[in-house]
Design a protein around this nucleic acid. Structure first.
Lengths: 339, 339
DNA sequence: TTGAAAGCGCTAACAG
DNA sequence: CTGTTAGCGCTTTCAA
């Protein structure tokens, strides 16, 4: 195992000072072309690489950003992550990533751990636990300590910072209206995410769409479910009495689960029952019949978030905080009737 | 924005030396309880955090590992990533992650970039480009420079290092034999990954299983496809003449794509045609009929890989390189007949 | 054109 | 018990 080569090594070789070597490698005009060339040649040949830890210590900048997401197995977050990684790497930033698994404690611990000088800033989507607890001091502390934060998707008004969100309410409104226009009147709403901000906003959009279209809200059609719930049992009451003609799912999984149950009960989709889901991963595309979904453009969300943070980090002066809204779009597939 | 608080600050406050403060906070017995307590109290109150960049420079250890994967949107890699993140965080390591998008150049660039002192070691699954080019010098260089590497899943014999692999050949063998035992004789093999090591191994397992069971290999049943290929066209010749009674897919997507086409052509699954796929993400579970797959236990692979690297980093003396093999297991669902 | 010195934040050996 | 010093690898005055 070779020792990593440092300025000191090179200095010794040529019997010059460390400063001379440093300046040579930085192509300073202070140094004679001759020395510069021999030093640079040597450095190249021996694959000299500046130690970025030393540089970080000196510059108080690490060119690294922390990305904190609830769960990378969720395809929206995965896509957002891909977008961030792309933008970061294009701009010479590295990414340190962590998953909270929806836990407030993990989120706080991670942030405490990473507020140790290794990062220039954070991009975060709040954990469910945090949105329940409504305690954001770990975030505001970070900002106070000079670590800028960009929040995306799951955000809070209680912290002032840059944000990238999806037009959740508008998206759900649009989806609901689409179902109504295609003739559906009894639209069940299924959600695994009623506890987080985006879930609440989407619910609002659903209600508003019903209202605007003169359909009375039937609370019994709103199903707040849990990941492990048995969809068969859940949906049975609605299926038996033909109570519903459409399902709007607010999260990634429940649309697919509902679809399975409906198919098993020999419903024709979309003739008998239409379905629209949120989050446009592989699942909706490959399922049979393929699922109409609201795309949240995860990759785009990620790109924008990373750009916002990097802009702030690269700029000298303070920039006003802004919130960018990414438009959702309805991807029509086979679980909805054509208008 | 508050300045980050340093030992120097605290030293000035109490008019003691920096060393005293350092020792106090490290609970050195050299310091009087009195001073120790007042200094620690102050530090706590003001949320003092040691600057880990400075510590890294001093210790020449960053407690950070780099994870390089082809693509996080692949659910095997995503699961492996989750496993690594878990183990790393349990052991106080941070993770810097990058995606190569299957590109050799990106892989090399990333590694060059990260060989700058920010990392203690790498965990990598080779990009398709690298496996095609068969140039691994960026990896062996890293090892020579004292950066240990653990390779997982897509590995190469050309580099000596720790490895975690899946028993790909055995897995494919098992899957093929399962199909044979359930009465299938004409088993089409579809693969998007014929260019990478694991794809080749799985192909071997398929061939061996046929051979061991007295079925002659029919090369025309081996379909090397590309992501964007139209599966309808691809499968048509086989479907038309009833040439196949089973499909074994070696990658994550093609099983599902094949299933779609077969369903559209009114085949009964598994009665007419059985299907087995590789990689056990959400897709196979939620699809109708649900898909029998070989699970590669991605999370487990990731955990083991991270443990291997961390063990090596934490241990003083050299450890012999080892290769761990994670067993695949067949998850029987609805696309195969019960034996 | 080159070098000496200071400093980024911290620890550790050694002195006092 | 406390402080001084040196040093991790690097850049940047300032002096020679």
């Amino acid at each position: 195992m070779k020792q990593r080569i440092t300025l000191k090594h090179i200095a010794k070789i040529f019997d010059v000072s460390i400063a001379t070597v440093s300046k040579s490698l930085n192509d300073s005009h202070e140094i004679s072309t001759e020395t510069k060339e021999k030093i640079r040649a040597y450095a190249k040949e021996h694959h000299y690489k500046p130690n970025s830890i030393a540089l970080s210590l000196l510059n108080k900048k690490t060119k690294t950003i922390g990305i904190i997401i609830p769960n990378i197995l969720n395809s929206f977050f995965a896509k957002a992550f891909v977008g961030m990684e792309k933008v970061a790497s294009e701009n010479g930033f590295s990414i340190i990533s962590c998953m909270t698994n929806e836990s407030y404690e993990k989120e706080v611990n991670i942030m405490e751990l990473l507020k140790n000088g290794t990062l220039d800033g954070f991009i975060i989507s709040l954990s469910e636990g945090t949105q329940l607890k409504q305690d954001f001091s770990h975030l505001s502390n970070a900002i106070n300590e000079g670590l800028p934060i960009v929040m995306f998707d799951r955000v809070t008004n209680s912290v002032e910072c840059d944000k990238v969100i999806v037009d959740d309410m508008q998206g759900a409104y649009h989806a609901t209206e689409h179902l109504i226009k295609s003739g559906c009147k009894n639209i069940a709403l299924i959600s695994e995410i009623h506890k987080v901000s985006v879930g609440k906003l989407r619910l609002k959009g659903y209600k508003k769409a019903l209202n605007d279209n003169g359909i009375e809200l039937d609370d019994s059609l709103i199903l707040n479910v849990h990941k492990k719930d048995d969809f068969n049992k859940l949906l049975n009451p609605y299926i038996k009495d033909n109570k519903i003609d459409a399902v709007l799912s607010l999260d990634e999984n429940s649309a697919i689960k509902a679809q399975r149950v409906l198919l098993e009960n020999n419903y024709k989709i979309p003739e008998d029952i239409s379905i629209i889901g949120f989050t446009n991963g592989k699942l909706p595309r490959f399922v049979t019949p393929s699922l109409t979904t609201m795309s949240q453009h995860g990759r785009n969300v990620g790109e924008v978030a990373a750009k916002m943070l990097i802009n702030r980090l690269n700029s000298e002066d303070d920039i006003d905080y802004t919130t960018k809204v990414i438009k959702t779009s309805l991807i029509e597939r086979e679980t909805t009737k054509r208008l």
